[in-house]
């Protein structure tokens, strides 16, 4: 009975939307820059899941190609972001986003 239910593409898309919402909430709430980066990764993964699901739904391989490029850009983004965090943290001690007020007007 229950085994007859097949998860449709809509289920996957809704799961990705929930994951994106959780990531958005995390970016706005957490104050540790590293954890904020992790929440951005959550949002990127939600988008990747959406792309792969839609590639299957519309039967087009280009959806999976886009995910490949998103992964490359995500890797580059994490490398640069963590480099910035390391460079900032070397000069000051506090590690919350609230402490980074150098550009405050």
């Amino acid at each position: 009975m229950i085994a007859a239910i097949q998860p449709t593409d809509t289920w996957y898309l809704i799961l990705a939307a929930v994951l994106f919402g959780i990531g958005t909430f995390g970016v706005m709430v957490r104050r540790n820059p590293l954890v904020m980066f992790m929440c951005i990764e959550l949002m990127l993964n939600a988008v990747n899941l959406t792309f792969v699901t839609l590639a299957t739904a519309v039967n087009d391989i280009n959806g999976q190609v886009v995910v490949f490029f998103v992964m490359v850009v995500a890797a580059a983004e994490v490398v640069v972001g963590l480099g910035i965090v390391v460079a900032i943290m070397r000069r000051r001690n506090g590690l919350t986003a609230d402490d980074l007020t150098a550009l405050k007007g």
């Binding site: 929930v18 919402g21 280009n62």
Partner: peptide, 22 residues
């Protein structure tokens, strides 16, 4: 989250196969 889910549910019938195939 709510806006995305509403859009997904509303656009459910748009998901038709139109690519060259996987």
């Amino acid at each position: 989250m709510g806006i995305l889910i509403a859009a997904i549910v509303a656009a459910d019938d748009v998901l038709v196969s139109r690519g060259s195939g996987i």
